[in-house]
């Protein structure tokens, strides 16, 4: 289990057994943000050719492109911090499943259009204020990435909230689907707020915001959208967790099988 390693900072992770790399808090938080963005961007790109209307085909691609763009900047930054010669593709494509640090929410399958929009709302309701706050990070590169991402995530909140409202308020069927999606995905919302030791160190160093400070904004966004959508949050005893430590859901391996297919089949080629 990787979880114990994350309990102390800095911690090490062996990539191929031959070399030991140091995961500083800055590296780790950057990598986690990159993984979140990549995996969700990848999921959104799976919609291509399957969207319910042509306009939404274009909108889903926009959301996916924003996230893949954010992931590229973040991976490049993480690679530079690490200083071990891994570029954006080395990090994005050539790790094992338990080395990906994304939250479980983003790897959840697209499901129906309601599930995709609920997932997007939960993620962006958190990431929009996160990036807004990270725009004043002590790390200049993270601050720059966040300043751009904040504007993008504002659109993600708007677009997904509008759809959740339409679906919740629309027809009996769309209401049922939207509520089912919320029931299925809400258990993955709590992980966004998780703070472990390296994250705490990064917060204290002024690199990233404390998720707790974003809770009021997140709650307000969700409450407002769900009220208008006539949807209700499920009552939960606890949230699902594990992604930040590399323990994923059963869906992740299949996603990686596609994502990594070319890089694994043709190692060391330039594309």
């Amino acid at each position: 289990m990787r979880a114990s390693k994350d309990a102390i900072a800095p911690c090490s992770s062996e990539r191929d057994g031959s070399k030991t790399l140091t995961e500083t808090p800055l590296f780790l938080v950057t990598l986690r943000l990159a993984d979140d963005a990549l995996i969700l961007g990848h999921r959104l790109s799976e919609w291509c050719g399957h969207a319910p209307v042509l306009e939404e085909e274009l909108a889903l691609a926009n959301l996916g492109l924003d996230l893949i763009g954010q992931a590229r900047s973040l991976y490049t930054h993480a690679g530079a911090i690490e200083g071990a010669g891994r570029d954006e593709d080395g990090l994005a494509y050539l790790r094992r499943e338990n080395e990906y640090r994304n939250v479980l929410l983003v790897e959840q399958p697209n499901g129906d259009f309601a599930a995709t929009m609920v997932r997007q709302l939960i993620y962006s309701a958190f990431m929009h204020p996160f990036h807004r706050a990270m725009a004043s990070s002590k790390d200049a590169t993270l601050a720059g990435i966040a300043a751009k991402a904040e504007k993008e995530m504002a659109y993600h909140v708007r677009h997904s909230a509008e759809w959740v409202i339409r679906l919740g308020d629309g027809t009996e069927e769309s209401h049922r689907r939207a509520q089912d999606a919320l029931d299925a995905l809400w258990p993955y919302a709590g992980e966004l707020f998780e703070v472990d030791a390296p994250m705490r160190a990064a917060i204290e160093a002024g690199l990233v915001p404390d998720p707790e400070s974003l809770r009021a904004t997140f709650d307000a966004t969700m409450t407002e959208a769900l009220a208008e959508a006539t949807l209700t949050l499920p009552k939960l005893g606890s949230f699902q967790t594990g992604g930040r430590a590399g323990r994923h859901t059963e869906h992740m391996g299949f996603l990686l099988a596609q994502l990594q297919y070319m890089q694994r089949t043709y190692p060391n080629a330039a594309w």
Binding site: L58, D89, M262, W271
Partner: peptide, 19 residues
Amino acid sequence: WITRAPSLKRKAALLAKVQ
């Protein structure tokens, strides 16, 4: 091929192209 594009640059370019 979007989900199997061999690099992030190619993935983004292909998604944008199809869009």
